[in-house]
C-alpha cells in the first residue's frame, strides 16, 4: 500500500494560449485532509478535472491510488464533487442518488437513507433537485461523493453557496471523514476553511505551485510576538539594533517583533537592561490568510 495517494508530475494543461496549470507536481499523503488553495482562476478545478479524467492533460502525468493515470479501478474508489454539483433537475434528490448508485453497479436503498441523513437532506429527499437551494445542492453533491464509501474524496469548493451554519456543518463532516482515515483533497479559495480543516496544503497561483507542506509547518517560520512596553519608541530602537531580533516594527499601539521562537523569552531581559519594561507580550499567530497574501500577493511570482 503506497503512502502517497495522489502524485502529479509536471502536470500541465493549456487551453489555447492560456496556461491553466503549469508543471504542477503534488504529493498527497494517505490519510491526510489536503487543501488545494488558490484564488479563483488559479487552476484548482482544472487539476481536479485532470485527476478525474474529465480534462485531458496537455503534458505531465499523475497517479491515483497507486494507478498511473487514474485507471478504471482507481476511479471507482474515488468520490468527487467538481464545481457546482450537477444532477438531473426533474429527479428528486433520492432518485438522483439512486441513479448514480445504479450506474456504479449497486442498489442499496439503506446507503441512500444513511447518506441523505448524514448530509441533512432526509426531509427533502423526495423533492425535485430543481427546487433545492445552492446549499442543499452542495449537500446532495457531498452525499453523491460518498456513494460507495470511497477511500479518496476530491471536493471542489464543497461549501460554496452555503450559509455559515451549513459551512460549519460541512467542515465538521469533512474533518470526521478525515478522521475515519479517508484521504481528502479539498480545493478552496477560503483560507480559513483550509486552515480549519486541512492537515496539509498546496498553494497554487496562476496554475503554478507556490508552496506545499503541513499547515502548521508553513505557519511556524512566521513566529512573531506582539509587545507593549513602558516606552515603545525606545524599545523599537533597542530591538532594531539587536542581533537576536530578525525584524521589529510599530503597528497600531504595539510592537510586532519577529524572533526565533526559542529566543522570544530573552526580549524582556534585553529591554529591561535599558529600563524599558514589558507590560504585555503575546505570540502573534500568523494566519494562513496573511501567509497566503504574502506569497501570492506582492511575491506572487515566487514559486517552486
Amino acid at each position: 500500500m503506497t503512502d502517497t495517494v495522489i502524485e502529479t508530475r509536471a502536470l500541465t494543461k493549456r487551453y489555447g494560449r492560456v496556461l491553466a496549470v503549469d508543471r504542477l507536481s503534488l504529493q498527497v499523503p494517505r490519510g491526510h485532509v489536503f487543501g488545494l488553495l488558490g484564488p479563483n482562476g488559479a487552476g484548482k478545478t482544472t487539476v481536479m478535472g485532470m485527476l478525474l479524467g474529465l480534462v485531458r492533460p496537455t503534458s505531465g502525468s499523475f497517479s491515483l491510488l497507486g494507478t498511473s493515470g487514474g485507471g478504471r479501478d482507481a476511479l471507482r474508489r474515488i468520490g468527487a464533487i467538481v464545481e457546482t454539483p450537477a444532477f438531473y433537475p426533474y429527479l428528486s434528490g433520492r432518485r438522483n442518488l439512486a441513479y448514480f448508485q445504479g450506474v456504479m453497479g449497486r442498489n442499496d436503498p439503506r446507503e441512500l437513507d444513511r447518506l441523505l441523513e448524514l448530509v441533512g437532506l432526509a426531509g427533502r429527499a423526495n423533492d425535485a433537485f430543481k427546487t433545492y437551494s445552492l446549499g442543499m445542492k452542495q449537500r446532495l453533491g457531498l452525499a453523491y461523493a460518498l456513494l460507495g464509501d470511497p477511500e479518496l474524496l476530491l471536493l471542489d469548493e464543497p461549501t460554496n453557496g452555503m450559509d455559515p451554519a451549513g459551512m460549519a456543518e460541512v467542515r465538521d463532516l469533512i474533518r470526521d471523514l478525515g478522521r475515519e482515515g479517508r484521504t481528502i483533497l479539498l480545493s478552496s479559495h477560503l483560507l480559513n476553511e483550509v486552515e480549519q480543516v486541512c492537515d496539509s496544503v498546496a498553494i497554487i497561483a496562476r496554475g503554478r505551485l507556490v508552496v506545499q507542506g503541513d499547515v502548521a509547518e508553513l505557519l511556524r517560520p512566521q513566529e512573531q510576538v506582539r509587545l507593549r512596553t513602558t516606552d515603545d519608541a525606545k524599545a523599537l530602537t533597542i530591538l532594531t539594533a539587536s542581533d537576536e531580533v530578525e525584524a521589529a516594527s510599530a503597528e497600531d499601539d504595539a510592537l510586532v517583533v519577529t524572533i526565533a521562537h526559542e529566543r522570544s523569552s530573552e526580549l524582556t531581559a534585553l529591554l529591561s537592561k535599558s529600563e524599558v519594561y514589558v507590560t504585555e507580550i503575546a505570540p502573534l499567530q500568523v494566519s494562513l490568510e496573511q501567509y497566503f497574501l504574502d506569497i501570492t500577493g506582492e511575491n506572487g511570482e515566487r514559486s517552486e
Binding site: G53, L75, A86, F100, M104
Partner: peptide, 14 residues
C-alpha cells in the same frame, strides 16, 4: 447542459 456528464464519468470512466 446540466453538467451531469461529469458525475457519470466519475463512476463510469470508460
Amino acid at each position: 447542459g446540466w453538467g451531469t456528464t461529469r458525475p457519470v464519468r466519475r463512476v463510469s470512466d470508460t
